[in-house]
């Protein structure tokens, strides 16, 4: 028998990812939380270790407006323009 694939869909062309600005320092790092208390705590712990053991400084922090909503694109663009790396936590 011939089956119609119930998972079929057409991929969309995704927006081009934001390119990091050339003048962003190589070790610039931000933390990005889904805004839940557990995620914030995880990120604080990560930041402490990275500062103490890896010499990171000036670690930035941002979060979604709330855990139930998506991150605003302009916030992500802003972070991409400021930092080379991000650690994302979605832990509860």
């Amino acid at each position: 028998m011939r089956i119609v694939d119930p998972t079929f869909g057409t991929p969309v062309e995704e927006d081009t990812p934001t390119v990091v600005a050339a003048d962003v320092p190589a070790r610039s790092l931000c933390l990005f939380s889904n805004s839940k208390p557990g995620a914030n705590e995880l990120l604080r712990g990560v930041a402490g270790h990275l500062e103490a053991e890896r010499g990171f400084a000036g670690i930035g922090f941002s979060s979604k407006p709330n855990a139930a909503a998506g991150a605003a694109p302009d916030v992500l663009d802003h972070l991409a323009a400021q930092y080379r790396m991000a650690v994302v936590a979605i832990g509860d």
Binding site: I3, V4, D5, P6, T7, F8, G9, T10, P11, V12, E14
Partner: peptide, 12 residues
């Protein structure tokens, strides 16, 4: 998934 569903797949 970000897949756009067609009518046939929804009908399936």
């Amino acid at each position: 998934s970000r897949l756009v569903p067609g009518l046939r797949a929804i009908a399936a």
